[in-house]
């Protein structure tokens, strides 16, 4: 039974991320007395939850054989737009708290949907590669966010309605509401990817684009939808973070896209497309978060952090590529 389960897991794309995630968590729990402390676990949640939410969208694109570098900027912009609406005291007095919160959330989500639509149309219809498209929108969106912040004093927007802040503080069964949102989204997208036809289409298209096209699959439409989902999820992550931190910082989401990409690749995604799942999203982001957490707990020079993350990424990709090549050789295909 155990052996069967192990054999099943071993054949999953996320197996490696599960393994190193567990190993790292156990090591931290054994060697650091501060790891299993509530404060630390709370702070881990505030990293893992929004990062996983963004990584869901990134993983969809990676399965399609694409990626989105604008996610960090979109997260920041959405948080700042929502925070901007929420911190207008005159508006709150005029409309009342519930309406302003609703307005703020909708404005935040609109940012992601619009940027996602632009990304999707540029990639699918104008045939500009995702790298160029999303680097472009990454800078444009970050620029707009900076413009909003220059009219403000200080680095963050603060002073939000109580209802909004309460949402960020509330816990259910020891987990923040943002973590619950994250888990629900993971489950929903996990089911979509495995159980619905539209979800499976991503694997067909990412696995062999020209064959999918010749079978008559609507590649362009699915590409646009996935970019919009990626934008929307980045917005959700941004708004949830603002609610949790009780402030919208101008540094929200800066350079986040690389952490997310790396998490997805460690979680079993491949830049070649056709591979990846929601387990990988969770274990990948959890691993990157645990790694950063480990550096804080042991007070290691934070500059070493990127060295280690980069090394792990290189090893994961190399081992994966080696195993794949060996398999192909055994079948006489190389």
């Amino acid at each position: 039974m155990v052996k069967k389960a192990f054999n099943y897991l071993r054949n999953q794309d996320y197996f490696f991320s599960l393994l190193i995630c567990l190993a790292f968590a156990i090591a931290l729990a054994v060697f650091s007395p501060y790891f299993l402390v509530r404060n630390n676990l709370d702070s881990l949640q505030t990293t893992i939850a929004p990062n996983s939410i963004i990584a869901i969208g990134m993983m969809l694109l990676i399965i399609l054989g694409m990626f989105d570098l604008s996610v960090g900027s979109v997260m920041g912009m959405s948080g700042i737009v929502a925070g901007y609406v929420l911190s207008r005291t005159a508006l709150v007095q005029a409309l009342g708290e519930p309406l302003v919160v609703l307005l703020a959330v909708l404005a935040g989500l609109a940012v992601g949907l619009v940027v996602g639509l632009i990304n999707g149309v540029l990639v699918a219809k104008a045939k500009i590669i995702p790298l160029i498209t999303t680097i472009g929108t990454m800078y444009i969106v970050r620029g707009f966010a900076e413009m909003i912040m220059t009219s403000e004093t200080g680095y963050s927007l603060i002073g939000f309605p109580k209802a909004f802040i309460d949402f960020g503080r509330t816990k259910f069964l020891g987990l923040y509401l943002m973590t619950w949102v994250c888990l629900i989204l993971l489950a929903v997208f996990g089911l979509v990817l495995t159980k619905t036809h539209i979800g499976r289409k991503l694997y067909y298209i990412g696995g062999n684009r020209s064959s999918a096209l010749s079978l008559g699959m609507n590649v362009d439409k699915i590409t646009i939808i996935c970019f919009m989902i990626s934008g929307l999820l980045s917005s959700i992550a941004g708004i949830l973070s603002v609610s949790r931190f009780e402030s919208a910082s101008r540094y929200l989401g800066v350079n986040l896209q690389m952490d997310i990409l790396i998490a997805c690749i460690i979680g079993g995604g491949s830049f070649l497309g056709g591979k990846g799942d929601m387990w990988g999203v969770f274990f990948g982001t959890a691993f990157v978060a645990l790694l950063q957490n480990g550096f804080n707990l042991f007070e290691i020079n934070p500059l070493l952090k990127s060295v280690v993350i980069g090394a792990v990424l290189a090893i994961v990709v190399a081992v994966d590529g080696y195993l794949y090549l060996q398999k192909k050789r055994a079948l006489g295909k190389v």
Binding site: H197, Y203, Y204, G206, G207, S210, S211, G274
Partner: peptide, 22 residues
């Protein structure tokens, strides 16, 4: 013109059965 990343049955049936909608 196959999908190496998928299973055999998914390669045989890339479309919903019996012309059902997605």
């Amino acid at each position: 013109s196959i999908f190496e990343n998928l299973t055999v049955y998914e390669n045989i049936y890339p479309f919903p059965l019996d012309n059902k909608k997605d």
